[in-house]
């Protein structure tokens, strides 16, 4: 009698443990990749997202052993701040329930939070990582920012110095005047 009662007590416990194990296994099945940024912060990133980065793909092609998550994949030109933003963007765009409206709102907010320097850094990081979607989005938004601005604004935006002599610049303007080009 005593044995029977013990077994009945342990059964639900066992089933709960099994379920918990199952849950753990399903969590582990979503394999993760270790990414190490330039400031030596390691990120565990879902493989489904990380495989969208061209740089990671290339790295895995060269050394497929790295996918066993024992070694971190180094990203030399990406700081942790930028990687967090990139991951945030990709998690939102991978989210199944996200409608077009949500994505638009998210993109607007995403842009608002960045100042110009951060935007450029993020663009460089996206270029290095070879992430198409984000890269297209950033270049488009930068083009939208500068398309109606005058030359001086764009020079400061890009951090560029004018290396034309005033005569060369004037000659260029004169040469193209017939096409009705407006140099604001």
């Amino acid at each position: 009698m005593a044995e029977e009662t013990e077994s009945t007590k342990t059964e639900p416990l066992k089933t709960a443990e099994e379920e918990f194990k199952k849950l753990e296994i399903t969590e582990e099945e979503e394999s993760e990749l270790k990414l190490e940024t330039s400031d030596h912060v390691t990120f565990m990133v879902e493989a489904s997202i990380a495989m969208k980065f061209g740089a990671v793909q290339q790295y895995l092609e060269v050394s497929p052993a790295a996918s066993a998550s024992a070694t971190a994949i180094p990203l030399h030109n990406v700081a942790s701040r930028e990687l967090i933003l990139i991951l945030e963007y990709y998690r939102m765009h991978d989210w199944v329930d996200a409608g077009e409206r949500d994505l638009k709102e998210f993109d607007e907010r995403f842009l608002k939070d960045l100042n110009y320097e951060e935007l450029k850094e993020l663009l460089l990081a996206a270029n290095y990582l070879n992430v198409e979607k984000l890269f297209n989005f950033l270049t488009k938004s930068i083009a939208n920012i500068i398309r109606n601005k005058d030359v001086e604004f764009v020079r400061t935006f890009f951090g560029i110095d004018n290396d034309y002599t005033p005569e060369e610049e004037a000659a260029y303007r004169e040469e193209n005047a017939w096409a009705g080009v407006k140099f604001v």
Binding site: D161, N162, D163, Y172, N176, A179, F183
Partner: peptide, 8 residues
């Protein structure tokens, strides 16, 4: 054309 005047 305006953007080619930024810089060489």
């Amino acid at each position: 054309p305006r953007f080619s005047i930024l810089n060489k």
